[in-house]
């Protein structure tokens, strides 16, 4: 952990983050550090929006936390800070008490209801 900014050093970017992260890393020293920042923030915002549509079916939501983590919370005041989608589903399972299974037929109905409500 960095004592100045409170961030963990992340040795391994999750595969869902690789596209943006790898391009930023490949740019290397001397490159404009802000060049990929807009892409990265847009990607994170989009990921949070998409994931929220799924999490809404379980009474949870996620938001981008300072562009470095995601903050997962439910309506009862539980919250968890996660690094990426890999950790998010595990944290959501912990809060919910059961795994969130995309193959669950009940999820289909809830997602359809959610889409109609929007």
């Amino acid at each position: 952990m960095c004592v100045l900014c409170g961030q963990d050093f992340v040795a391994q970017a999750h595969w869902t983050d690789r596209y943006v992260e790898d391009r930023a890393r490949a740019a290397g020293p001397g490159a404009d550090p802000t060049e990929y920042q807009r892409d990265r923030r847009r990607d994170r915002a989009h990921r949070a929006a998409v994931t929220n549509q799924v999490l809404a079916c379980y009474g949870m939501r996620v938001k981008d936390w300072a562009g470095s983590k995601y903050l997962l919370s439910d309506g009862k005041g539980n919250s968890e800070i996660v690094q990426d989608l890999g950790a998010l589903w595990a944290a959501a399972e912990k809060i919910l008490g059961r795994p969130l299974d995309p193959l669950d037929p009940a999820l289909k109905e809830r997602m359809l209801d959610g889409a109609l409500a929007r």
């Binding site: 595969w15 869902t16 990921r47 998409v50 589903w89 969130l100």
Partner: peptide, 17 residues
């Protein structure tokens, strides 16, 4: 396909199954 959304679905599937 939306790569980010596919990643959401697939990471969820991998976590569960």
């Amino acid at each position: 396909v939306d790569w980010t959304a596919f990643g959401t679905w697939f990471s969820m599937l991998l976590h569960a199954r």
